[in-house]
Design a protein around this nucleic acid. Sequence first.
DNA 1: TTGTAGGCGTTATCAC
DNA 2: GTGATAACGCCTACAA
Lengths: 323, 323
Amino acid sequence: MVTIKEVAEEAGVSVATVSRVINQNGYVSEETLEKVKSVIDKLNYKPNSIARSLYHKTSNMIGLIIPDITNPFFPELARAVEDVAMMYGFKVVLCNSDQNPEKEMKYLDLFKEKYVDGIIFTTQSQESTVYSDLNVPIVALDRIGDTTIPSVVSNNYKGAKKATELLLQKGVKNIAHIRGPKNIAPSEARYHGFIDAVEGKGVNYTISEAEFQLKDAERKAEQFFETHTGIDGIFCSNDTIAAGFLKVALKKGIKVPEDLQIVGFDGSFFGEFIYPELTTVSQPIYDMGAVATRLLIKIIQGNQPEKLLYEMPTTIIERGTTR
Amino acid sequence: MVTIKEVAEEAGVSVATVSRVINQNGYVSEETLEKVKSVIDKLNYKPNSIARSLYHKTSNMIGLIIPDITNPFFPELARAVEDVAMMYGFKVVLCNSDQNPEKEMKYLDLFKEKYVDGIIFTTQSQESTVYSDLNVPIVALDRIGDTTIPSVVSNNYKGAKKATELLLQKGVKNIAHIRGPKNIAPSEARYHGFIDAVEGKGVNYTISEAEFQLKDAERKAEQFFETHTGIDGIFCSNDTIAAGFLKVALKKGIKVPEDLQIVGFDGSFFGEFIYPELTTVSQPIYDMGAVATRLLIKIIQGNQPEKLLYEMPTTIIERGTTR
DNA sequence: TTGTAGGCGTTATCAC
DNA sequence: GTGATAACGCCTACAA
């Protein structure tokens, strides 16, 4: 690694002058400017960002905490964060928390040590690690509750309500909702959306529960179809659950969408991989990541956010599992 | 952020002593040890890793370059790298190169600036950015060609051969291979595996090509089924292509696996999401990431790798798309 | 317009 | 056993 000192020597000037050239501040004569620039090129000098960080207490890095990159929801989100951060000259450090508060704390410490300029975190669980006193700009993604932190979420309640209404409007008479885990905020919101769509409408409905995992969904589906008959519409709390129920239904010879209609939630890419293709409530995942990142950068740059809650709209994508 | 100096003052000792306590080297009397430790706890002092990096020219960070985290192959890989790195006290910076050499170079510069201790890169294209002269321990994942760099790959050739032989053994008479792009090494290796399995065996075979993307695969599948009749077995270069072909086949009312058998490659998670479940050649993705990371850390710690090429075995997972 | 020097937080060498 | 102190690479008052 070539240092600023070497550049200075080679150019026959002081390090201060080189520094001025790099940072384009202070006075530098045209002549020395050219000279220094050419030496920088010649030596392929790149300022050491560690040293810079030490001085500025800033790193041009954004820390991103997600539960698990292996969960299909997050790669796109992470990608959006990276892309936008990149555009503004920030780098991203990505960490998987596994919803484990200890791991989360560990990463937060890491971030502080590394002088990250800001943090975006996505954690669907409701137990709150302490984010308030860490004195770094922060934005929450897909999380509600902590009303003091600027948040970007999609409208889970409304999306779920619309999805349920779609099923009813398509003629479903006996509807089921397979809800997600109780301690996960979006799952809760979707449940309420469903309830508010069916309550008082004179339709039969039933509620089951499954984890956001294929294996568990399949297991629950097996049980479900044995104990429930006559169900002709299911709204699942996410696409993974929907995929599990669809699979089991097909295996049992149930005709989809003729005899059973299914709607998922998320707009995961794999919804198009399966056949019939999954009708789903699509979240603007990439946009959510992009909005959150822009918001964070704004705060980093010293501007106050205009509002604390950014609710992003969901859209229904009608595909093969509804008529 | 509380600094070593503040701890020293509070404890009534010099920074040198505090440093000794933190790093557990040099002599410190039992008494001062206790004193300093308690102050560290009380002030919740964490050594600043930027300052450490500056001194040590080391960062406890590993740089990971992948083409695109949005491609289902990579999240698991990234996860493995992170998990193993974590176990050894390293952090991971993840970057998406989009197979773009410029972006790659940019990240490599970033890594050098940040004193990363080592780099793992995965790039399926064969054009080689210059990795040799960057003077940082490096390991290649899923890439062949540059024989000077320690590499971890799965046995694409052998897996493809086995997959093809499986189809033949299941009674397939008219077999097709949908190969991946020509400039991607694994796709090339799988092609050769297929060829070597069918050549001279007296079976009819045909070759088509598709991108590793669902939309393109579907388009190619539409064309394929129109121009080819009597095909009763297809080996696809990856699971995404297989998913596309399966979808179109089902749409056309072709019975799978009765009239058409399909085998994919990768062992992507979504193979279980579709119905019938995809028979596939599974790569030990997580293990590949883990092995590469351990290898890298070994090199970082100054040990020479025993060999330059680590070939990981593939396994066939027979599921619903074969009889 | 340019250079000197102190400081960012930590570690390691060398005195004491 | 412990404490100054120089050094890591860079930036910026302040001096010249």
